[in-house]
């Protein structure tokens, strides 16, 4: 007897936009604003189809005034609205960081918990397509560093939808980072993992829970977004050599799911952390520090880190490929760890 399983496949961007549409149907206080989120549907497709469906009142094109419209999202959220505001590229944070760092992140605390800011700031991150230093960063740690912001970075269409629903329903401000290359857009690299199974009905994926996407006994690899996918690919290659790597998709930087990482390290006794962000003071350092503090004696080898080596993202293809960790670097690092 055979069973046919129907799997509904969506790209990352369609999964995100579906989550937003379903929440807009459910709650009239949810609305979207940002540059080119209207008829265009967001430069990276995050708002695809929303303007046509919900109109210009609830899906608002803004002027190129990030301070004003992110600040306006804060003001609207304080009034009980649930704005989703898009910062087109995370790299543009410089023109509006006061609103993000000093207001979005701090108002709840400074008000003694009295003011709630149920807002989502969605923003495109990541490189790998020669967009150079001002359009290719991830800046995970820049945002995760500031207390008061939840910071999530889903890597699959399933999580993009489920975590967007959770982010919209959360009463705290959430930075929702989506990776450009994982949106499944026709004009970028076509990656298998930018398309995936997404149920049509609404569901939530909790913020703050890492996901063990591949089990293994020899080494733990923690990655986020593209580096997690690279890690899975590296793990599959390493399996041929008889090395079984466990891969953790971090999914959320804040809150950080320490337990999933520590449990894995206690099992494998080896840790590699891989990041598409800068190396110093970043996610790899944070996770390495946590494991050193809480599971040092479970380790059988020094922790290894792979990240962008503290240089701006270069334009030329061979230069960019040289500094962003990929499958090959991960495989070599794991081999080094296991030999230790």
């Amino acid at each position: 007897m055979s069973t046919v399983v129907h799997r509904r496949l969506l790209t990352g961007n369609k999964a995100m936009a579906e989550a937003i549409a379903q929440e807009m149907e459910r709650d009239e206080n949810v609305f979207v604003m940002g540059e080119d989120v209207g008829a265009y549907g967001g430069i990276f497709g995050s708002a695809e189809g929303l303007h046509q469906r919900f109109g210009a009142e609830r899906v608002r094109d803004t002027p190129i005034s990030e301070t004003a419209f992110i600040g306006a999202a804060i003001g609207a959220a304080a009034e009980g609205m649930r704005p989703i505001v898009e910062l087109m590229f995370v790299d543009f944070f410089g023109v509006c960081m006061d609103q993000i760092y000093n207001h979005m992140a701090k108002i709840h605390y400074m008000s003694g918990g009295n003011v709630k800011l149920p807002m989502v700031l969605m923003t495109a991150v990541g490189g790998g397509y020669s967009d150079a230093a001002q359009h290719s960063q991830t800046l995970y740690a820049t945002f995760a560093h500031m207390p008061g912001l939840k910071v999530v970075a889903p890597a699959t269409p399933y999580d993009l939808k489920g975590m967007m629903v959770s982010a919209i329903r959360d009463d705290n401000p959430v930075i929702f980072m989506f990776h450009k290359t994982l949106q499944g857009l026709g004009w970028m690299d076509q990656l298998d993992y930018s398309v995936g199974h997404v149920p049509e009905e609404e569901y939530t994926v909790p913020l703050g829970k890492a996901n063990v996407v591949r089990e293994g006994k020899d080494v733990t690899i923690v990655g986020i977004q593209m580096t997690m996918h690279h890690a899975v690919e590296a793990a599959n290659q390493l399996a041929v050599e008889g090395i079984e790597a466990e891969v953790i998709d971090l999914r959320s930087l804040v809150p950080l799911d320490k337990e999933t990482i520590l449990n894995s390290v206690r099992k494998t006794h080896r840790l590699l952390v891989v990041d598409e962000d800068y190396r110093s003071y970043g996610m790899t350092a944070e996770i390495a520090a946590i494991v050193a503090e809480e599971a040092l004696y479970d380790l059988e080898a020094p922790i290894l880190r792979l990240a962008v080596p503290d240089v701006p993202i270069p334009y030329s293809r061979p230069l960019e490929q040289a500094i962003v960790p990929g499958v090959k670097e991960i495989r070599e690092a794991v081999e080094q760890l296991v030999r230790h």
Partner: peptide, 8 residues
């Protein structure tokens, strides 16, 4: 900008 948001 916060007042803009409240007005919105």
């Amino acid at each position: 900008p916060h007042a803009v948001g409240a007005a919105l």
